[in-house]
């Protein structure tokens, strides 16, 4: 028996079947109990012939399955087409429009709007920039050193050699400063991406808001005051903010802001790991190198920048211990907001 020819005949027959009945006929002919192939398989004595025959059998079986799905979909679609309605009719003539109680904005959006409002109150513009960034904007112009772990595909999603999913909204700083001369007062809000195992408390996608002020005579005191204002807008007037020294490639000096714990008021509790403070993001003075990278004279202009997570802020505001529900979209969660 010529296995190859048999397989080709079978595949041709399967491809030319245009209704399920034809396909079934082909299936019986080539794969049925009395088919040439099955009979041959029963007679097999050596391994090589067996493997060849089985390969042919598998190829025919998968072709049948694929064609069957196609034909079923086509038959279903033909049936569905007969249920055609005139979609230009008003909604209420297309079927029942079910009355529904008011829906709910996602907690991330609620925080986003509060952030927007707080910064609009301070006279800042809101930016929503692209998420696919070039290495130039995501790293180089932000003065990321060559050794920085974020440059590694272990930490960052690379789309190709030159493009990544942005790892922080900081690329917006560069866009803002390239588009316009200072003064710049802006906050960029959007999705950022970092390779991370998915656990109840971690997800590789999250939202950041990142503020930037570039003007003459911007100081660290201005940064502290601005963040205090925003933290109070988000979490309540009684909150306090402290700063710890840190390191970020694109700011110098760099600091991490902590906000006083809202659960214990700063006395120390399980939520703040008994420190009275909760880590909330990163901040610092725009590194002179970053200013130089966009053609600004660091002796003339100075600026501050800070970035915080929307989900993190929502967790603190609404007492949500884990990240998972933010992306699960269970209405039992969403309907609480």
């Amino acid at each position: 028996m010529d296995t190859q020819a048999l397989q080709q005949d079978a595949l041709d027959a399967i491809a030319s079947a245009t209704v399920l009945a034809d396909l079934d006929e082909a299936r019986v002919k080539y794969l049925g109990r009395k088919s040439e192939l099955k009979l041959a398989l029963r007679e097999v004595r050596d391994r090589e012939t067996g493997m060849a025959l089985n390969a042919a059998r598998e190829a025919i079986e998968s072709a049948v399955a694929a064609r069957q799905a196609e034909l079923e979909r086509a038959e279903l679609d033909a049936k569905l087409s007969s249920e055609r309605v005139d979609v230009t009719l008003p909604a209420e003539l297309l079927g029942d429009v079910h009355p529904r109680p008011r829906g709910h904005l996602h907690p991330t959006t609620l925080i986003r709007r509060d952030v927007e409002d707080a910064f609009i109150g301070l006279g800042y513009e809101i930016r929503d920039d692209r998420e696919v960034e070039t290495l130039e904007y995501n790293f180089d112009k932000l003065a990321f050193p060559e050794w920085h772990p974020a440059r590694s595909p272990r930490d960052t999603y690379f789309l190709d050699a030159n493009r990544v999913l942005r790892t922080e909204t900081s690329a917006s700083q560069i866009h803002a400063m390239e588009e316009r001369k200072p003064p710049i007062y802006m906050v960029s809000i959007g999705r950022v991406y970092r390779r991370d195992a998915i656990t109840p408390t971690r997800f590789p996608i999250f939202h950041q808001f990142e503020g930037l002020a570039v003007d003459r005579h911007i100081t660290m005191a201005d940064l502290k005051g601005t963040l205090l204002h925003v933290m109070r807008a988000l979490f309540g007037e009684e909150r306090r903010v402290r700063f710890r020294t840190h390191y970020f490639p694109f700011t110098e000096p760099s600091m991490e802001p902590d906000v006083s714990c809202g659960v214990c008021g700063g006395e120390g509790c399980a939520t703040c790991k008994w420190s009275g403070w909760i880590e909330i993001g990163g901040s610092g003075m725009v590194d002179p190198q970053v200013l130089a990278n966009v053609g600004l004279d660091p002796d003339e202009w100075s600026g501050f920048a800070f970035g915080l997570g929307l989900e993190r802020a929502a967790q603190l505001r609404y007492d949500i211990p884990i990240i998972r529900p933010f992306w699960e979209n269970d209405l039992r969660f969403l309907r609480q907001f």
Binding site: I120, L122, D215, I218, T219, D222, L228
Partner: peptide, 20 residues
Amino acid sequence: ELSEIPFTLPEKDVSFGSLT
């Protein structure tokens, strides 16, 4: 000197404060 630095707001003569 981190904890000594005061809390101020930038003195600015521009505002971009509105949603697009």
